[in-house]
């Protein structure tokens, strides 16, 4: 069985800026991976390369054995494999919550209106927005918008979900409701990569944590190993700087 995600020697440059310097990544089906690391370490770029939002400069990316970093794969084929959640939600502001969810199933998968609405209503209920079907994005809080975005991505039934700092643009009191939905999804067996600064969440929800810095994977392992006994000096430094008190309680634990 092919790995859900495999990248080999993945390089990405923006002009002179070498953002990803040879990423080798293998993700099994059902794994939930958190990617942590300082800003500018290439985490987001990695996620964007895995769903073809960025063309890569070198290396290979496979989803379920299909090479996706060349021209042959269409948006349509890709959408059945991988869904993406953005930091800024990127909901379609001129459509209602339900229309946001049903558009792609209708236009890309060819579902009838009734079928796609059934899917949309079910998914919006699942993310706790059954009463907001006809609300516009502008009438929703950030947390609600992000949950609509999750429902919208799920409507295409991707096998893999990527989360690019899903709670970074949210007010602190709205972070919980979004993390809850993501955690539910993680427990349902979905293959996921979550780029996050929510360390507690990453520790609780993921099966593996990857620490990235300056375009490389510095260290990876089970959450406990990374958060409690990081081997690399760079990982230790990052965690200490980010979570001085959190790090100590973890060590005591």
């Amino acid at each position: 069985m092919a790995k859900a995600i495999r990248s080999r020697n993945l390089h990405k440059r923006f002009g002179d800026l070498h953002v990803l310097k040879g990423i080798d990544l293998e993700v099994e089906e059902g794994e939930v991976i958190s990617v942590i690391g300082p800003s500018g370490s290439g985490k987001s770029t990695l996620a964007r390369c895995l769903c073809k939002l960025e063309d890569i400069d070198e290396g290979e990316v496979y989803l379920y054995g299909n090479r996706i970093d060349d021209k042959r794969i269409s948006n349509r084929e890709l959408s059945g494999m991988v869904g993406m959640i953005f930091q800024q939600f990127n909901l379609f502001p001129h459509l209602t919550a339900l229309q946001n969810v049903t558009l792609a199933p209708t236009k890309v998968k060819g579902l009838t209106r009734e079928q796609s609405e059934e899917v949309g209503v079910r998914l919006l209920h699942r993310v706790g927005l059954g009463d907001k079907l006809n609300a516009r994005p502008s009438q929703l809080s950030g947390g609600q918008q992000q949950r609509v975005a999750i429902a919208r991505a799920l409507a295409m039934e991707p096998k893999i979900m990527l989360f690019d700092e899903p709670t970074s643009a949210l007010d602190p009191e709205l972070v919980g409701e979004v993390l809850e939905v993501i955690a539910q999804l993680a427990h349902s067996g979905m293959t996921m990569i979550i780029i996050t600064h929510e360390m507690l969440f990453a520790k609780d929800v993921s099966s593996r944590v990857i620490f990235m810095d300056e375009g490389i994977i510095v260290e990876e392992g089970p959450p406990y190993e990374i958060f409690v006994r990081p081997k690399q000096a760079r990982t230790q430094l990052f965690l200490q700087r980010l979570l001085p008190h959190f790090g100590k309680t973890l060590v005591v634990e």
């Binding site: 948006n75 990127n90 909901l91 890309v108």
Partner: peptide
Amino acid sequence: PKGQWEAAKVLGLSYLQ
């Protein structure tokens, strides 16, 4: 915003759609 294009692309919509 560019994010609208990106969201549509990941959802599988073609350029014209």
